[in-house]
Design a protein around this nucleic acid. Structure first.
Lengths: 112, 112
DNA sequence: TGAGCAAAGTTCCAAATCGAAACTATAGGT
DNA sequence: ACCTATAGTTTCGATTTGGAACTTTGCTCA
């Protein structure tokens, strides 16, 4: 089964995951919540390739989670901003944040 | 960048996603919260292939999110149960559930 | 006894996706 | 006219996936 097939799944969790159930997508959303909005920012911040970022952004826009706004003046330059629907995903990211902070503490190199 | 590299990321969200940031993993956890505990149940319920389920379960056990308990009598039969650490991911699934229910209503075939 | 069955993987191969890096297209600046 | 910035697209080899068959071990029941 391919994961896009999950979009008609009986389970709301599966349907949600058919849109955002992927680490790069989630990281892009994290960036959006932190105020980033441009293509190259996402590429830099997430560490995903341009290829993948392009695909994820396209899907997020199609799903009406992000809104793509061309800058008035130029054609290329644009902004990706969260829609209201997208903003409602924030609690999910907060849970992931808290869980990671508690259960996956970063291992700093112990000073020798 | 490969996604296992996220496990030492400065961001707790990224670290969390390095373990559970994948749709099949999340669906397996959903099943666990609903009381499923056996390999074939996960395969059936999620729709992922045995191949993928095997890999995901292995990682969840390594991450101490699931505990693998061989059944006393047999060697093959076993149970996967959530650890306390794993149980703390429930709020994340609840958010995904609520969001999907609200924003991705299932499209029933309209009766003609 | 021994044939069949269940459970939990593993293996195989072809197809899809990814990572890395180079390339393209358009606007603006100098 | 040339250079830079931005937002992609393309290419190609490597990795991961999907799908199905196969393996292994113990259990059941005739």
């Amino acid at each position: 089964m391919k994961w896009t097939d999950l979009d008609e799944n009986w389970c709301p969790i599966a349907r949600t995951l058919s849109v955002v159930g992927d680490r790069w997508t989630m990281l892009i959303l994290r960036d959006c919540f932190q105020g980033l909005s441009r293509f190259d920012q996402f590429v830099q911040s997430t560490g995903a390739t341009r290829h993948v970022v392009a695909g994820r952004l396209k899907r997020l826009v199609e799903a009406d989670i992000l809104d793509k706004r061309p800058q008035a003046t130029g054609l290329k330059r644009c902004e990706y901003v969260l829609t209201d629907k997208g903003k409602e995903l924030e609690p999910a990211l907060r849970v992931l944040f808290d869980w990671g902070k508690k259960h996956l503490p970063i291992r700093r190199p112990t000073k020798t």
